Simulated scan of single mutants.
Amino acid sequence: MEQLATDATEGMDPLIFGRVLDGKGGGRAIGRHEVDDWKPAAPGEVLWLHLRRHAPEVLPWLENDLGIPEPTAELLVSSSTRPRALREGDSLVATLRGINFNPDAQPEDMISLQLWSDGTRLITLRKLPMQTPRDVLAMLDRGKGPTDAGSAITEIVEQLVVRMNETIVDMNTKIDELEEMDVEEDYEQILPKITTIRRNCLALKRHMSPQHEALERIARDAPDWFEEHDRREIAESIDRLRRYLDDIDISKESALVLQDELRARSLASNEHATYMLTIVAGIFLPLGFLTGLMGINVGGMPGVNDGQAFWVVVAICLSIMALQLFLFWRWKWL
């Protein structure tokens, strides 16, 4: 997968890229100086701007030059990234989240994508580099991209949801690999991996559940320029996301079952070791008492002077040990 550039290398220009959708699946690039006074030159044209949310110039640009109301502009640059969607008059505002595929990122480190659209303009904002908008951009540059604001939003949503499947499939593959490992020999390696998988499942579920609600809100309350076929596409993404949520639950349960099996085997192993130590202690306890008694340094102990006392004691100890082993076997302790 393409490694995305960081803001340290691409600068802090608020505009990452801009395109004017031609309504036929293609688009032309547009620069910063053309954006503020842009008007559709032909029917069906839509302006799409992809911005850096954390750039200092973004907020005043949204309010003063692009004419977005102050509360909405502040929401778009806010660090509150819980997925949600709402309608403001004829505009749609949403915060969505996608899997972080940047180097050294963990699946639970999801990236937020804010978007705003009034049907003729679409503005998306992010903080960290994100692959999904660039995928849609590549489709436009090939002439096979979205044709209007509604289809652009549905394409972005679909790409975000589809990419989640890659992480879920990867977790399921790891679970399958762990189940094939030797539990007793690889216990110390398996348990931390299972813990990581469960943590990833919980993080994905925490972010994807509200995203499911946000998409349902878009499908239900989007303005009229969000056409019926766009709502159907969103409904497909909602169904796919629901299946992924079910898959996450299955992955979490599979990891939990494997973790319980590991703990049960470890507990059984410890109990067996403790049991064997108890048996050994039970065998040698009377023997120790007997040898201690015979070793008392008191004159007149029977058999001390005839030279046979040691062997008599050894024979008695062996007899007691044999009797104990027989009784333990009879009582099914061994």
Rank of each mutant, 00 (worst) to 15 (best):
E10Q: 15
V20M: 04
V20D: 06
K24A: 11
G27R: 00
W38N: 05
W38L: 09
A41L: 12
P43N: 14
E45V: 10
L47G: 00
W48V: 08
H54P: 03
A55F: 07
E63V: 15
A73G: 05
E74P: 02
S78E: 07
S80V: 13
R82F: 04
A85F: 03
R87V: 00
S91M: 08
V93T: 10
L96A: 01
I99W: 05
N102M: 07
P103T: 05
I111C: 00
L113R: 06
W116A: 03
G119P: 02
L125S: 03
R126S: 01
K127T: 10
L128K: 13
V136N: 01
D148N: 15
A149D: 05
I153L: 09
L160W: 01
V161Y: 04
T167Y: 02
L178I: 14
E188G: 00
I190Y: 05
P192F: 10
L202S: 11
S209A: 14
P210D: 11
Q211Y: 08
L215G: 04
E216N: 12
A219T: 04
D224P: 01
E233H: 12
L245V: 09
D246L: 13
K252E: 09
S254T: 10
D260H: 13
A264G: 10
L267V: 09
L267K: 11
S269I: 07
L285K: 07
F289A: 06
G300L: 12
D306K: 09
G307D: 09
F310R: 15
W311M: 13
F326L: 11
L327M: 11
R330K: 15
